[in-house]
Nucleic acid binder design. Structure first.
Length: 318
DNA sequence: CGACGGGACGC
DNA sequence: CGACGGGACGC
């Protein structure tokens, strides 16, 4: 047996994962709480890598397995502020358990959480699941999350159940990997933050040096030809090509926000992998600001790629 | 060298 | 209800 395996076996009986911690709880407070049960070898609060705020969960490794066991029985379900914490054994660390959270939509509104798990259980070990309900009515929204133990199990579930119509239903369900919470939030809420951005992306500076790059419909070439999509009430839709696969909504806000009123941004991702397909859209309210953004950002180098930025062409056209 | 989306992402 | 994968004296 390897040293890694021995240590893993040790950890399996002493290392706990603690979920649903209150936002304000610090790593010291986490350690302190669990020290009331026994000697804590280590306590780690997981934080956002860049922003540094708590992600609401952490790991506590005890010295003695018996204390870890007691911590589960005495602290699991403890109410702290508005939260009820969950204390359970941490699975051995592995990259196979990462990114195993699925997002399911189009579910029958009558489907309960146990029934949902029954549908998915054959593809692997379910760590947790949740059916989202409408706040006002308390009724199912037909949307759920399921976290599998292993990513491969989740992949298997996507493969078999995406597009599948449950017995007694008329509608196929969608099963895909869940976006991470940061990603999901960016599409809403950030519509206020395009003020105060630095000149990192040029900003609405006049007479900026131009980079000449091919763009089928950049403002420079826009005279005759194909229909530029929607002005009207929705604003001006801009097509951004050559984004990297990890591009997110935040980067689009950051790039276009300085040029004016941005009403919407969207990174187009592969349905299953959630990786960017290389392009996205930004809608801006005012033509002049959209034109300035296109003029300035077409040819902009983002990471190792040179962006092509233009008004979106009409649907169905290349 | 690749090229234009589209329901819902946490009660 | 609610953010489940860090860091690890290594290449």
């Amino acid at each position: 047996m390897s040293l890694d395996q021995m240590m893993e076996d040790e950890d399996a009986r002493t290392n706990l994962i603690v979920n649903y911690l209150p936002q304000s709880m610090s790593q010291d407070e986490l350690r302190s709480l669990f020290s009331s049960v026994g000697d804590v070898e280590s306590a780690k609060l997981i934080r956002d890598k860049v922003a540094g705020h708590s992600l609401g969960y952490g790991f506590v490794n005890f010295v003695n397995p018996s204390d870890a066991e007691r911590a589960i029985s005495t602290l699991n379900g403890l109410r702290l502020q508005s939260k009820t914490i969950k204390v359970s054994y941490a699975r051995p660390s592995s990259d196979m358990i990462k990114d195993a959270n699925l997002y399911i939509s189009g579910l029958p509104r009558t489907l309960s959480q146990p029934e949902l798990e029954d549908m998915f259980a054959r593809y692997g070990h379910i760590i947790n699941s949740r059916v989202l309900v409408d706040q006002a009515s308390g009724l199912s929204r037909g949307v759920a999350f399921i976290r599998f133990d292993k990513r491969a199990e989740a992949e298997d579930a996507v493969k078999h159940l995406n597009g599948h119509t449950p017995p007694g239903s008329s509608e196929p369900i969608t099963v895909k990997f869940a976006a991470n919470p940061n990603q999901a939030r960016n599409s809403q809420m950030m519509s206020q933050m395009y003020h105060g951005q630095s000149r990192r992306f040029g900003g609405p500076v006049h007479h900026q040096a131009q980079r000449f790059r091919f763009s089928p419909m950049s403002v420079d070439h826009m005279s005759g030809g194909g229909g530029v999509s929607g002005n009207s009430s929705s604003g001006w839709c801009i097509f951004i090509y050559n984004l990297g696969q990890d591009a997110d909504e935040a980067i689009l806000w950051q790039m276009f926000g300085p040029f004016g009123a941005v009403v919407n941004v969207k990174v187009i991702r592969d349905f299953n992998t959630n990786k960017c397909k290389g392009f996205g859209f930004v809608t801006m309210t005012n033509y002049e600001e959209a034109a300035m953004a296109i003029h300035s950002l077409n040819g902009y180098r983002l990471g190792d790629k040179v962006l092509q930025v233009s008004f979106k062409t009409s649907k169905g056209h290349k």
